[in-house]
Each structure stands twice: as structure tokens, then as C-alpha cells.
Design a protein around this nucleic acid. Structure first.
Lengths: 187, 187
DNA sequence: GCGAGAATAGGACGAATGTCCTACGATTTT
DNA sequence: AAAATCGTAGGACATTCGTCCTATTCTCGC
């Protein structure tokens, strides 16, 4: 892995675990094991490394969802797999929240120009979910359903982070899965 | 209003709008119109002002909910009023997110000792909602229902902050209100 | 083997941070 | 009126921040 990739990886993790504002050039360089001067050679400003991290998240998210879409599962199972993320990543979510929601909110508070860039990750999930619902014959309200699933995931992530209550998260997953079954049965 | 109250007020607003980490002693003092030396006289450390802000939020939240409970509306209308908060405060939420969820998450990322203190505001809402559902005859799953309403509000707040889509927020409010009606009809 | 450019190291810079100290004016107490 | 406490001001402090510069090492085409 190239130095630049290592930097983006370390920054990605630190931005998630500590927040963008809190994470310094020095701490990223230390995590990678390089000097600040070397860091500066690859990224001139903190905003540049932020944009690189967002770009990496966009690409890894697209890749993950593409792999899901190319698997053998149908669209319903794909949506359920997305819903299950709050369980799959429960440990990180309890400690740091959702990587997408927490970054976009931090950038909103900072009034940072890259906020819209970060929201793009939400758009990737939203579009992918919408496509699944379209495949399920819900073209008319596919976007509405997609946003509802996203709403669920953000709410569960925030409260899991606050309460560290795994039984709660599982109940909410079960509830949304029931809702999903009911939605697709009565349509 | 005393200087101390003015400081807590200004810090409360700045922590919400800019985040705790980003907000400096100097910016709070400037917002109040006092010197840093005077600020230090009232609060020795940044953690002290944070705890004072959390305490103020706890008290104002308790006071608001007490006023709601003492009003003429029944428990169902009270819950609907809570649900409506994401519309009532839509402007601030679009700009800064939910004050409770965003602060608790920031403190989680900072691994800050006052995190549990901040989570207390969630507990106040949770307890109040649980009491409403108990009054509605749902003692068995009152806490589960309360957490579901909180999940909704956090999810809508996060996505409203990301997308600035008022029609979406209204659709989610309508959806949860329908869910609420159905819940209480079939019980 | 050499020279050019890429990569890395390490430190310097001003600005901002949280914290702390001392001094002055206001207010209250004796 | 004198004295003591409270409130406020303004600056000093070490540290850390993002940024930038220069010098050295590495790599690779010629």
C-alpha cells in the first residue's frame, strides 16, 4: 500500500473515531509512522486530506453495494442486509456512531465547504436502496421507502451510541423488518 | 441575567452551532462581551462550562416536559407534540442537527467523561415518553415504544441536517403518527 | 554510474488554544 | 470611613495547531 493510501486510511479511521476537527496532521502522521514534512508532501491542506477521505468512502461504499447487488440475493434480502448493518457494526457504532451521519453533521456545524461532498455518501446509499425498492415493484414511492430505511439506520446508530443497548438495536431491526414485510405484502 | 447565566447561555448556543471542540473560551467570552479573565473567574476549565451547559439543558428539558404534562392535552397529544419537534425546530435542525444527539456523539468521539452526563438528556425524554405510553395503557412495552419514538426523532434530525428536505421530514412525521394511531388501536 | 525527480525528514513560523496570574474597580460588610 | 470580598480586565504562559521551507535520501531512466 502506497504512503498516500496509508495516509488516507489512517485519516479515515481517525476522522471516524475522533472527529475531523479533533484529528491533527501530527496524529495522522504518527499513526502512519511518517514525518509531518512527508505528510505535507502528499496533502497540502487539511481540507485536501478530508476530500480524499470522503472520496475513498464514496468509492468503498459504491464497491460494497455493487458487490451486494451482484450477489445471488434478491433485492429484499439486500435491503435486509443493509438494515442489519447496525448489528454487524454494532461495536464501532456504540463507540463512534455512524461514520456518514456523524461526519456530515460535524461538517455542517463547521460550515465546511466539503459538507455536500460528504452528503454524497448518503446519496449513494439512498440511490442504491431506491433501486432495490424499484426492483421490488415500488417505483412510485421507492425514494420515500429508501429514506425511511436510512432514517431508521441513523436513529438506531445515534441511540446505540448513546445507550450501548444491544437488545434495543435488535428490537428496532426486528421492527423495521416487520414493517418491510408488511409493506411488500400489502402493495 | 447574571454574567454566569449569560456565559452558560452563550456556550449552550455555541456548543450547539459549532460543536464543543471547536468552541473556544475566547469565542464564548466575545459572544457575552466580557474578557477572558472574567470568564475564568466563573469557570476554571472548559469541562466545567460543559457540565454547566449540560445541567442547564437537563433543567430546561425537564421544565419543558413538565409544562407539557401539566397542560390540558392528553398523553397521546403530548407524544404527537414531541414527534412534531422535528418540524417545529426544523430550521435549527437543518443547520446543526439535534442538540442532544450531536453533543452525545461528539463527546463519545472525544472519549469525554461528561458523555454519560449528556446522555442524561436522552434519559429525560425517554422517561417522559415512557410515562405517556404507560398512561396510554401500554405499561408492558412503554419503554420500547419510547425508544422507537426517540429513534425516529434522531433519524429524521440527522437526515434533515444532511438533505434539508422539508417534505421528507413531514412524510416521516406523518408515517410515525400513523404508526402511533395503529399501535394504540390494535392494543 | 549518474543525474533528475520523487519521497522523506525535521524543523521553523505565526496564530490560536486552555490555563493561569496580577491588578484595578465595584460592592458589600464592619 | 475603612476594610474585605466580589467582579472584571488584560495580558503571560507553554503547548499545539496548520502550514511552509530546506535539506537529505531514495529510485530509476539514461
Amino acid at each position: 500500500m502506497s504512503t498516500r493510501e496509508q495516509i488516507v486510511d489512517a485519516a479515515n479511521r481517525l476522522f471516524y473515531e475522533q472527529g475531523f476537527e479533533r484529528t491533527s496532521f501530527a496524529s495522522i502522521a504518527e499513526a502512519v509512522g511518517i514525518s509531518r514534512g512527508n505528510f505535507y508532501y502528499h496533502f497540502k491542506t487539511k481540507d485536501a486530506i478530508l476530500d480524499a477521505v470522503i472520496q475513498a468512502r464514496l468509492e468503498s461504499t459504491r464497491q460494497m453495494l455493487r458487490a451486494w447487488s451482484e450477489g445471488s440475493a434478491g433485492p429484499l434480502d439486500r435491503v435486509r442486509r443493509f438494515i442489519e448493518i447496525v448489528i454487524t457494526n454494532q461495536g464501532d457504532i456504540e463507540n463512534y456512531g455512524c461514520p456518514v451521519g456523524t461526519l456530515t453533521n460535524e461538517l455542517a456545524k463547521l460550515d465546511h465547504p466539503s459538507r455536500t461532498h460528504a452528503v454524497g455518501v448518503f446519496d449513494v446509499f439512498r440511490t442504491w436502496l431506491r433501486e432495490q425498492f424499484e426492483e421490488l415493484g415500488r417505483a412510485a414511492d421507492a425514494d420515500d421507502l429508501a429514506l425511511h430505511v436510512l432514517t431508521f439506520s441513523q436513529g438506531v446508530a445515534t441511540l446505540s451510541n448513546a445507550f450501548h443497548d444491544r437488545a434495543y438495536a435488535q428490537r428496532e431491526v426486528d421492527r423495521l423488518n416487520s414493517w418491510l414485510t408488511q409493506q411488500l405484502a400489502t402493495s
